[in-house]
């Protein structure tokens, strides 16, 4: 009647192997299945433009351009008060290329 302890040991080994197998399965599942889940979650999200892309880039431009022609006055006005650059003295022999003190420029319009 001495065989009982041996069969009990075998059962313990089987239980241990089964537990290790379950742990390994769960570990591998978490290791490989998790990225797949996140990837599928990303693909399920509705497509959105990158945050850096300005909304104006995907809007039709024709209408705003016409609108600018109609109300060009309002949005782009900037008033500044400034101390003028020291004036260059009038000099008939100037080289013509200066103009550091010029207020503005006449050009073809």
């Amino acid at each position: 009647m001495p065989a009982k302890p041996n069969s009990r040991n075998w059962n313990d080994v089987q239980t241990a192997i089964a537990a290790v197998a379950v742990v390994l399965t769960l570990g591998l599942w978490n290791l490989f299945a998790q990225p797949a889940k996140s990837a599928s979650a990303q693909t399920e999200q509705p497509p959105t433009p990158p945050p850096s892309e300005p909304p104006a880039a995907i809007e039709p431009t024709a209408i705003p351009q016409v609108k600018i022609m109609f109300t060009q006055a309002a949005p782009q006005t900037v008033t500044t008060s400034e101390q003028q650059v020291p004036k260059k003295k009038k000099n008939k022999n100037n080289d013509g290329g200066g103009g550091g003190g010029t207020v503005t420029q006449t050009k073809s319009s």
């Binding site: 100037n94 050009k107 073809s108």
Partner: peptide
């Protein structure tokens, strides 16, 4: 009492003056 300084745009070099008027 001073005159205004107005540049004449240089047609060959954008942003530069080819002459300055008083």
């Amino acid at each position: 009492g001073d005159p205004w300084q107005i540049g004449i745009a240089d047609p060959f070099h954008a942003g530069e003056n080819i002459e300055v008027l008083y």
